[in-house]
Design a protein around this nucleic acid. Structure first.
Lengths: 177, 177
DNA sequence: AACAATAAATACCAACTAGTACGAAAATGT
DNA sequence: ACATTTTCGTACTAGTTGGTATTTATTGTT
């Protein structure tokens, strides 16, 4: 039910959602309270579905380059398309989000950034990353680049081209290794 | 009149635009025909205002690194905020654009990509860029990274941090030089 | 000064939005 | 088997959207 979101994020109305779900409008409102509540639930669903595997990947003990490759394959594979872009879309359209959704998006984003930071620090400790790059900058950089990948995929970019660009960008992190 | 656009792009309605402009609604429709026409005119205005200087910068005869630095300063300076993000916003929200606007956005985007490509080829010829990177990939890469910078600025990112990330990304192009 | 022609704005349209009041139906307790 | 409560959907707000028909004001001409 929650998964019917990913056709667009802000491009779909409550009426349309209820129609597609086959549920009555008051039913949806009884279940989720408001549009904000529905979005919040959708983000939570997205978190467990998509962010979970991603965090696992980031926490795995393999070399930086290998994790990166798997990561890029994971977020650029066509099957990721439906829900893969939700967080990226929501983060690039703040202001029109309800308070619940905004808070949850922030929470997920911070969780991700923490995972990026420990990932990069581990790479540093192993000598797999350029020591001239501050972990803070690297964290934001990883976040930005991965978000960009998701947005490009959401806009229908070619997986190969998107991946090639991302690999090029990430090569900046491992240059001095 | 056209400049009243930049508070948001898809976040503002015709009613609101007319109200802010102090013009009557039929007046605006007589002038621009439709919402699509107004958007088209806004993009054209944006092209001459913002893209012009940018193309000049790209075509200048200075070293790659210097052009890049000026470019980043230009698109991350606070004064660029109002209109600076228009193209990036429109490109990340296709599908809800009218045919005129869509065509014009495509046209401007292609114009930019051509400029990026000749810029990179010149850098290659001068030995300022990594010869292992295909001009096609580099073109898309530059396009993607600059769009990302504009989007980050539109979302209120810190200019220093945004610039630092961009410099890190672009360092991948000049690595083998 | 009276009248025709044109410009522009008020007031409207149908279709949509998020959200709900209320009656009907179904499940429940006795 | 009946009464009560609880679930559930039709039908409805109130407001906004892009877009326009009609009326009002302004102008030029005689």
């Amino acid at each position: 039910m929650t998964s019917y979101w990913c056709d667009g994020v802000r491009n779909v109305s409550m009426n349309e959602i209820c129609r597609r779900a086959g549920a009555s409008k008051p039913g949806v409102y009884r279940e989720f309270g408001s549009e904000d509540g529905l979005m919040d639930a959708a983000v939570e669903h997205y978190r467990t579905t998509m962010i979970g595997p991603l965090l696992e990947l980031l926490a795995s003990d393999q070399p930086f380059a290998e994790v990166l490759e798997r990561l890029l394959l994971f977020i650029t594979e066509p099957s990721s398309k439906p829900a893969g872009c939700l967080l990226a879309e929501l983060r690039s359209a703040p202001g029109r989000l309800g308070p619940l959704t905004a808070a949850r998006v922030d929470s997920v984003a911070e969780e991700l950034r923490n995972a990026y930071e420990t990932w990069f620090r581990r790479a540093l400790a192993r000598g797999e990353a350029d020591t001239m790059i501050s972990p803070d900058l690297a964290t934001h950089f990883i976040d930005t680049q991965l978000t960009t990948v998701l947005l490009q995929m959401a806009l229908g970019g070619e997986p190969h081209l998107v991946r090639a660009q991302a690999e090029l960008a990430f090569s900046a992190l491992t240059r001095g290794a």
